[in-house]
């Protein structure tokens, strides 16, 4: 468990004044990431996307204490594997002595889609880095286009809800499980809205000598059509509806970090968001979509419980 008192002693590492939208969960999770990193220096890479463009507008940078590097969209992990290799090489020859942590960020587009290959490669090679997918479930930077992380029924600008289509037709792919299948030492799901769970996970990941992965759901007021002040509550709602369970897989062992006391309907999560608004009209087809989201949510939860039980 993260200790708030200790965290309060860590100096702020992300400067205010970045250009993320009001209420954007990406800013919150980035600050929490750097807090969790404590006093060990980090080198950060970031894929092209909202976080990158908003925090590094030349000649300014929000990254006031750490080196920050962006090279392209699909290669945050590959770029970091070069940095980490450089670290190993320079350490071998005595040119570097101190411990440095490596944190690679990618949006869901940069992780689930275009960057999947380079992430998979970097994880398989075993570079010591924490890869964080800040997952707002669409390509937000370029105007809310669909990604493989976009949930079924959400309207996006490349698979919009229309007269014959209900928005995205497919369920999202299970990136967290894909990373589990890489047999890396640590994989976790987190959410913006539960700081303690997230900070604890980042701390744990950074303490591991190997590749680690955190998939953090990040509400996006602009793309989701939600109120900026609801970001954190919405994140928690994703957990309470089992839409986005908090869990971790350490050396293959599953642990669910939060089990909702009473199961809430997925409707509670979907309804406040404009991206799902069309699902709540009188068209019976839309009701089917909501039902299918409930069904897959339940099935995945059951599966998770089984896996936690070692089955």
């Amino acid at each position: 468990m993260a200790n708030l008192k200790e965290l309060s002693k860590v100096p702020e590492r992300l400067a205010g004044g970045h250009r993320l939208c009001i209420g954007c969960g990406a800013g919150t999770l980035t600050r929490q990431t750097l807090l969790a990193a404590g006093n060990t220096p980090v080198v950060v890479t970031c894929a092209t996307g909202c976080l990158e463009v908003s925090t590094s507008v030349y000649p300014y940078s929000s990254w006031k204490k750490d080196s920050f590097f962006h090279s392209a969209f699909e290669n945050s992990a590959a770029t970091m594997s070069g940095i980490e290799a450089a670290y190993v090489a320079l350490k071998k020859t005595g040119k570097i002595k101190e411990k440095i942590n490596f944190i690679a960020f990618g949006g869901d587009g940069g992780t689930y889609d275009i960057g999947l290959q380079s992430l998979s490669g970097a994880m398989e090679r075993g570079h010591r880095m924490l890869y964080i997918c800040y997952n707002n479930e669409a390509y937000m930077n370029t105007g809310i286009q669909r990604s493989a992380a976009t949930p079924r029924g959400a309207t996006t600008t490349t698979e919009p809800a229309g007269k014959v289509k209900p928005g995205k037709e497919q369920h999202r792919k299970d990136m967290t499980e894909i990373m589990v299948a890489h047999n890396i030492p640590y994989v976790a799901q987190a959410v913006v809205g539960d700081w303690n769970d997230y900070v604890t996970k980042v701390q744990k990941a950074l303490s591991i000598d190997g590749p680690t992965f955190i998939n953090i759901m990040q509400p996006c007021p602009l793309g989701w059509g939600t109120k900026p002040e609801d970001t954190l509550a919405l994140g928690r709602l994703a957990v309470d509806t089992n839409i986005w369970p908090l869990y971790e897989v350490e050396n293959g062992v599953y642990k669910i970090n939060k089990k909702p006391k009473e199961k809430k309907s997925v409707v509670e999560f979907l309804k406040p968001q404009a991206r799902f608004k069309h699902l709540f009209n009188s068209n019976p087809k839309n009701a089917e979509i909501i039902e299918s989201v409930q069904k897959i949510t339940d099935a995945k939860w059951e599966l998770l419980l089984k896996r936690e039980g070692g089955k």
Partner: peptide, 19 residues
């Protein structure tokens, strides 16, 4: 690496890192 795109990306990362 697993591709040339990543080869150049990693070389870029390493070079920017100071190697």
């Amino acid at each position: 690496v697993e591709s040339e795109h990543s080869a150049m990306s990693a070389a870029i990362g390493a070079s920017a890192a100071g190697a």
